[in-house]
Each structure stands twice: as C-alpha cells, then as structure tokens.
C-alpha cells in the first residue's frame, strides 16, 4: 500500500484513526508493517503490500 492510502483508511471496528508502523518499504510502497487502533487496542497487519483490515473475528 502507498502512504496516501492512510488518508482514507480507518479502523473497521470503531472507524477511528490508525497508527502506521512501517517495517519494510520499497519506494512509495509499504510492503510490511502494522496498523494499530489505540481505541480498540487492535493491530491490523500489512503483508506483502496488502493491508488486512478484516475485523479480527473474521480473519482466518
């Protein structure tokens, strides 16, 4: 995902802001990292460039 996706991205549960932690990036593209919602205390992974924002109880 690119950094500008953060403009529109929110927590799927409370619709609050997410804090981004980048672990690996290539140019403008974030490949691995985490999106954290402080209000819900939930972490959503970014893996291979794909932010996984499925609600936690629906993840595999």
């Amino acid at each position: 995902m690119r950094h500008d996706l953060m403009e529109i991205l929110v927590c799927p549960l409370c619709k609050g802001d997410l804090q981004l932690t980048v672990e690996k990036e290539e140019g403008a593209e974030i490949l691995d990292g985490k999106l954290y919602c402080a209000a819900c205390n939930e972490t959503f992974p970014i893996e291979e460039g794909i932010p996984n924002l499925l609600p936690p109880d629906l993840r595999d």
């Binding site: 690119r2 529109i8 991205l9 799927p12 549960l13 794909i50 932010p51 924002l53 609600p55 629906l58």
Partner: peptide, 14 residues
C-alpha cells in the same frame, strides 16, 4: 489502491 476488508465493516473513513 486495494485493501483487504469486509464490506459489512468498511475500513474507510466517513
């Protein structure tokens, strides 16, 4: 841009 999510709980700002 694509993101994995549920259309019943959109990770998209209001």
């Amino acid at each position: 841009e694509f993101r994995q999510g549920e259309i019943e709980a959109l990770p998209v700002d209001s």
